[in-house]
Every structure is written in C-alpha cells, then in structure tokens.
Write a protein that binds this DNA or RNA. Sequence first.
DNA 1: CTCGTTTTGTGAAATAATTTTCAATAAAAA
DNA 2: TTTTTATTGAAAATTATTTCACAAAACGAG
Lengths: 214, 214
Amino acid sequence: MAEIKIPKATAKRLPIYYRYLNILHDAEKNRVSSTELSEAVKVDSATIRRDFSYFGALGKRGYGYDVDTLLKFFKKILNQDKLTNVALIGVGNLGNALLNFNFHQNSNVRISAAFDIRPDLANTVQSGVPIYPMSELRKQLEDQQIKIVILTVPESVAQNVTDDAVAGGVVGILNFTPLRVSVPTNVRVQNVDLTNELQTLIYFLDHYNDNEEN
Amino acid sequence: MAEIKIPKATAKRLPIYYRYLNILHDAEKNRVSSTELSEAVKVDSATIRRDFSYFGALGKRGYGYDVDTLLKFFKKILNQDKLTNVALIGVGNLGNALLNFNFHQNSNVRISAAFDIRPDLANTVQSGVPIYPMSELRKQLEDQQIKIVILTVPESVAQNVTDDAVAGGVVGILNFTPLRVSVPTNVRVQNVDLTNELQTLIYFLDHYNDNEEN
DNA sequence: CTCGTTTTGTGAAATAATTTTCAATAAAAA
DNA sequence: TTTTTATTGAAAATTATTTCACAAAACGAG
C-alpha cells in the first residue's frame, strides 16, 4: 500500500467528496465542476482542484470532472469496492445507537460483531448483529479477521479493552471514549469526542465573530 | 468577546487539556509539567507550551504549571463556569443515545429541550428532557433563549430544520447529518460525520504505515 | 473551423501549525 | 551558598495547508 502519499488534510476530505459524487451519480448527472462541488461540500474550489490533482489529472479543462470516472476512482481509493467488517465494543447507550446506525447505507462498512460485558446481552443478536461476551474479544477478532473496532465502552476500561483488541490484531480504532488510549505505532486511533466537539463549538461562538470554517 | 484570537488548532485542543486538568485536580495533584500532560493527552509537549503561551505566561520555569490555576483559567475560557443549555433536534436512533449521553458529567452542558416530528413523542418527557413537536421549534428556541442545537434529523430535512433553527436565533450547530448545511456567516457548524470518520480511518490504514497522529 | 468562454492544473505567495532550540529561571541537591 | 537539574517561554526554523491568479487546454456555438 501507501503508493501515493497525499496530505492528511486532503485525506480527511475524500469521504466528503465521495459522498457527494454518489449523490450526483444517483441524480444521473455526468459532469461536475470544482465550483459546483465547492458549494455542495463547502470546501474552496481551489482546494478541491488541488486535492484532486494529487491523484493526477482527473478533470478536463473547460469541461470539469466526469462524475462516473471520479466516483470509480474514489471508490477504489477509499476501499469502498470491498465490504469492510468492523466490530463494536460496548453495546451501551451509544453503542446501541451505532448498531442501528446504517453505516452500510452510505458506505461499504458493516458491523459484523459486537461485544459487551453484560451477561444478559452476551450470545444474543441485536439489530442483526451477534453479541459476544467480552471474554471472547480477542479470540473472535482473530477468528473473524476483524481489523477495525468502534470503541464505546466506559472510559475506565477503555485502555484495557484497547490492549485486548490490539492483541487480537486490530489496527484501527474509532474511539468514542474521552480517553486518549495508548497504542503501538502501527495502530491508528480516530477520536470522536462528543463533549469535546460541543466545548469547541462553544469556544468558537464565544471567541470568534467570523465563523468561516472548521 | 473575541479578546484573544488564538489558532483554531489550539482551540480544538483546549477541551482535551481541560478534561485532563480536571482529572489531575480530582487526584489532588497540584503541579504538572508539559511533558506529563503530553503523555496523557497525546499532544507534543512543545505544542502544549505553545498553546498555553497564547494566553500568557501560565507556568513557572523549572517548576511546571499549577493545576488549579490552569484549571480555573480554562474553565473560564471554555465557558464551563456557566451552564449552557442546548436543544436536541431529532429524537431518533442517535438522538436518543445523545439524550442519555451524560454531557453534564464532563462539561457544563445540558440538553434542556428536544424536538421530534413523531406525534407520539411530542409532549412527552424522555430521559428527563421535554420533547416538543417540530412545529414549535422556532418558538421554543426563542422563548428558551437556546443558541446551540444538536442536529440528529434525517438528511432530507436537515436544511429546512437548520433554517428554522437559525430563524429561532441559533448560532451554533453540532451537525450529525452528512449534509453540509448552509448557514449565515454568523452561525457556526461543527460537523460530526460518523461514516466519514470510519472512511477516513480506513483510508489511513490502507495508505499510511506510520500512524503517528491525526 | 474559428473564436469566445469555461474550467482545469499548478507555480508562487500567503497563511497556519508544528517543532527545534536555547536562554532564563526555579527548585532541588550538594 | 553553589551547583545541578528541570522546565518554561519565545524566537526561529521547518513543515503543512490554503489561496491566488493565470496560462493552457478543451468545449461549444455559430
């Protein structure tokens, strides 16, 4: 892997582009300009052109970009041409919502296993997903070859569970706990901290009057 | 407001610092160094010192930072010395989870009103929060002086609901829908896009081997 | 087939963020 | 008291990202 090394800021925008390209495709539009895209995804058109250009000359001058070409390209780049199975660890309040959250609608990702400590949940099926007891975490991750987990456990056990998951071969963690977990360098953690997001929003509202972007 | 204009990247880290300072405070630690903080929050120590220095000389050379001083300072900066009421719009799958999510545990934020289109939900109380019908959105936001909303409605109505909320005086939106909503320049939108986060994670896993940071 | 218009792709400039480095200072040890 | 060690704060260097602005290319109308 790692053929093309594009800026991280660009990488984070790719899913946004991908999603809108799907919308255009469904609307049977076959061309789009960076300006039009810009309005929809709220990213400066020059930034979009620059982003796309890291992958080569994808557009045509005086015309724009061919929706299907771009779509196919991004589908591959984002690994959306294959199904990615992920596990959910912690079927509490938020975990449950994520079980029902239709990741599969917009992306080729599916929660194929879940884990919880509560005995009444273990060995049941919730929203079509089998729930395993925590004790089987490592084994199931290994057996099912799951490399990515969504972490929605209480903060107090987050590090232990993470260590377990990593021992089971996990290399990507979508971390909903407020704890900044420690992982080996080959493991990537993407933090989603809801309290944080709210506090940041409040900070910006109080201290900035111009609310351009993120 | 807007007395001090610090970099956005710094602003986004403030809640992380704040949270860990609270932990130190609860553990009755009274001093902390940038190095120690660095390990806990996974931010380079030089970045932390630089971040803090935007607010003046908060530490002491050869000593570190006084936990309580810093804590008080950040509490004020982040507006955590006052209660912030927010509204939740859309009590579906995710909305329900957020109703039960204890924002108040880690931050001085409370969901004080919620809205939903479903008639059976309107005028009930869920998890201690009154649910109003959508038709009352604007009026209630105005009456209750709510300036911040959490948006967890279906994408198809996201723009309309946003327009309504803005008409009701909202200036901050925590947007969980995948739609990049359009708002006047005085309104700030903080997007939390779960599908996106997962796709970004997958992208990084496939294309980067060194997984240092975000 | 020509010409005006559109729109990309990209150097160069501007802006933003991180990291290095080290003098200054405080605390602890000798 | 003096020396050593720890640690900040800030200047400077570096790296990353965005934006400007325009030549070059391609389209489409006539």
